[in-house]
Amino acid sequence: MTEFLDALVAHAFLQKALIAGLLASIGCGLIGPFVVVKRIAFMAGGIAHAVLGGMGAALYFGFDPLAGALVAALVSAILMGMVHLVWQAQEDTLISALWAVGMAIGILFIAKTPGYQADLMSLLFGNILLVPDRALVWMIALDLVLALTIAACYRPFLALAFDAEFARLRGLPVTVFYLLLLCLVALTVVLLIQVVGLILVIALLTLPAATAGHYVRSLGTMILIATLLGAFFTTLGLALSFGPDLPAGPTMILLAAAAYILSASLSHGLKQRRARLQIRDG
């Protein structure tokens, strides 16, 4: 660990990696809880994978792959949202299809783009040590958009996530807010891809929030704890992976998963204990 701290002081690329991890955890903390309580993790996974289509196309045509990722994420979020709203009976089939079609498009474009094959691994699994300055600026902007939107619309999003039918009766345009929420998920996916790549995104989006969910009584607290947990996992993951030269993304994910499993069994145990006490006292 001291080795990591020394290196952190010495190397700008490590400092940038640390900042990238912290910026990503803001997004995962703000949006992850909504993904977990609204149970749209599968859709978020679909959006994350379909992003490869946009990245591939951007590389082929010589645009910024981040811009391609952003467009592809938003388009696939809206498409999947429409599938959910209109073709609910076929929802899982159609979302898996969109998931795979996005990846297929991406692979075809990348195959025809000279010199980019080697980068496929870092697109899929991320490389936090190679996050360029440009991407950090993008990440700050995305975090701002997410934070401002959630701050302005916390109550309608809470109402939508908690009880959409009732929210509709109170006059909330639930379709608009549902699609808006999916667009925020899309932005978060693009944000997190910088750190862990598009395949591992879904774990960083859901695990810190689900772990927080074991202990909280309000969505606001869940957001706060998920953000802190996200920061903890990305930072510790980076530190642990540095010495033995492991890939950072997968290290972070395994940390988050281990914490989730521990926490799930702990909270299960607490629940059992409460039930036993209830019976004894009741």
Binding site: V37, A152, R155, R170, S218
Partner: peptide
Amino acid sequence: FPIRVEEVVALGRLGKAASGLFG
């Protein structure tokens, strides 16, 4: 769902003229 009873009831005021949709 992580929500307290008071908040559940308060969400019933969503859309009331005094309270609006946002915020």
